[in-house]
Design a protein around this nucleic acid. Structure first.
Lengths: 239, 239
DNA sequence: TGCAAACTTGCACTTAGTGTAATTACGTGA
DNA sequence: TCACGTAATTACACTAAGTGCAAGTTTGCA
């Protein structure tokens, strides 16, 4: 998500945070930012959601309360930055796909790249830690929504401006919904388990969900629960 | 959404708020509740989002600040109750559909029922008033999400517990996404305009979105902008 | 080295949200 | 219609979120 409304610190000069010149100042800011986020995540782990304050985070990150708010608009935002990283990564993958590929295929490929331990781990943890907290869940929804918008933009660019906005919005929204569905179902089944088998399940769910979408959710003839353990056959054909 | 965690007022005795005995007390509560919501909406209209406080709402509704919080957990929730009403209505329509109809068809029919002035008006207004406000937008996302969950439940009931959870989640999520897409695009095109033509556009968008979904978003061969004004032909076939 | 801009901090202030206990209004049974 | 119990409203006090402002400190650059 990369919250663009940092107050004092986010100066205008470097404006584009592209890979130009990561000046000393920018490095410091990035370090501070991630140390705050890390502190927040630590506290979430150790205290449980809702049992610590912004002041705690700031103290634990070695900055003042005020500085915390210079970097993140809310406590949730600090935690959401984890999810943001996850989704930014996915978006990046998406944009890297060849332009002549179908959106659905690109999306599947992009989501696929996320089903490796390094990427999902923080997200999965956030998921589990977040479950019982209302406003954290909200932030997560926001992250998905932001992601949808990015996909709309990317798809519009790719398909040219001739496509209807409705098509773009509906498609992007559905794709994201399916990604979300896959993750939710996966998490419900496997919890925070990151074993290879668990990740294989996640991957399979992502594939299946995109398959369903590409097939217009035809008949509920789908696998009657987990696909029979002989997985990996139920899928990719079509679209 | 029908927030179920009202603090003091929501007593246990009547428990099920079904159409049993709307006792005097319950009527009073309902009245208070909606007068608070109305006051909130009025202030949103007159002051613009972010320019009034809970205290203002309470004063304007003739209750104490504390009573406000007895009815709604946050300021946003008071406004969201409008969206909740809208969506509850949609859900109700959905559940009324014959059980042997496809989910997509039911969803379309249910959404259809909302494209009449009485139902959309408040929602459309909320939409326009809400546009620039971060936390109100969040509440709206939450409302959609809640709606998704309801659809999952309804669909699970309808399709029997044999269907995979992934199917249910992906389908429900996509349906809602398409509904959301239709409303967003409609609003972007027509603003808070509630004229018959505008509503016809909304209806058409809902139909089109569901059509796209049922067709697996086949090729971007869709209408290249508003469907040519000879609308109402681009659609419903398929699924 | 020295200066300007960027970053951090402390402080003061408004508002959100919650617990609690006192007060008032309502519904019921006699 | 009166009194009694319960549900709803309110006042009050308190914690924590979030923001503006005016210092201070650090960093980049000449």
């Amino acid at each position: 998500m990369t919250h663009s409304n940092i107050h004092h610190p986010a100066a205008e000069p470097p404006a584009f945070s592209g890979a130009g010149t990561p000046s000393r100042r920018e490095l410091n800011k990035a370090a501070t930012r991630s140390s705050i986020a890390a502190a927040a995540l630590d506290l979430l782990r150790s205290q449980g959601s809702g049992n610590f304050t912004v002041e705690d985070i700031a103290a634990s990150a070695g900055v003042s309360r005020r500085t915390f708010f210079n970097y993140f608009p809310t406590l949730e935002a600090a935690l959401a930055s984890v999810a943001d990283g996850f989704m930014d990564h996915a978006l990046e993958q998406f944009r890297l796909r060849p332009a002549d590929e179908s959106i659905l295929e690109s999306a599947q490929a992009a989501l696929m790249a996320l089903a490796d331990p390094m990427s999902v781990a923080p997200m999965a943890e956030l998921f589990s830690l977040t479950q019982d907290n209302r406003s954290l869940a909200r932030s997560e929804l926001e992250a998905w929504d932001h992601c949808t918008e990015q996909i709309i933009d990317a798809a519009r660019t790719r398909l040219g401006s001739g496509v209807s906005e409705l098509y773009l919005h509906a498609l992007a929204g559905s794709v994201i919904s399916c990604g979300k569905a896959a993750m939710n179902v996966w998490f419900a089944e496997c919890g925070p388990d990151l074993s290879p088998e668990s990740l294989a399940t996640l991957r399979q769910h992502l594939i299946d969900a995109m398959g369903l979408l590409g097939a217009g959710f035809a008949p509920p003839s789908g696998p009657s629960h987990h696909p029979v353990p002989t997985s990996a056959a139920t899928t990719t054909d079509r679209f």
